[in-house]
Amino acid sequence: MIRWIVTFLIIALIAAVLGFGGIAAGAAEIAKIIFYIFIVLFVLSLISSLFKR
């Protein structure tokens, strides 16, 4: 998932440099959503590993 986040952030940066503001905003928003999903899954993984013991 981190690879997807980095990919969309790079797309957003390149689009912003080239002047495509809408595409840059869209790619940054997608990266942000994937990041939040990653954080939630990471926390759930930590919690489940604590209860397995």
Rank of each mutant, 00 (worst) to 15 (best):
R3A: 15
W4I: 14
W4C: 13
I5W: 00
I5P: 03
V6P: 00
T7H: 11
F8A: 07
F8C: 10
L9W: 04
L9F: 02
L9H: 01
L9N: 04
L9Y: 03
I10M: 08
I11R: 08
I11A: 11
A12M: 05
A12L: 08
A12C: 06
A12R: 07
L13F: 10
I14S: 08
I14H: 00
A15P: 04
A16C: 06
V17Y: 03
L18Y: 10
L18C: 08
L18S: 11
G19L: 05
G19W: 05
F20L: 10
F20V: 10
G21H: 01
G22A: 12
G22R: 11
G22Y: 09
I23W: 10
I23T: 13
I23S: 13
A24P: 03
A24N: 04
A24R: 01
A24F: 00
A25M: 02
A25F: 01
A25Q: 00
A28G: 01
A28Y: 00
E29G: 12
I30F: 07
I30C: 04
I34A: 14
I34F: 13
I34P: 05
F35V: 04
F35Y: 11
Y36K: 13
Y36G: 11
I37M: 11
I37A: 06
F38C: 04
I39A: 06
V40A: 12
F42T: 13
F42K: 07
F42R: 06
F42Y: 12
V43D: 09
V43I: 14
V43H: 06
L44F: 11
S45M: 14
S45G: 12
L46E: 11
L46M: 12
L46K: 13
I47G: 03
I47D: 02
I47W: 01
L50D: 03
F51I: 15
R53A: 14
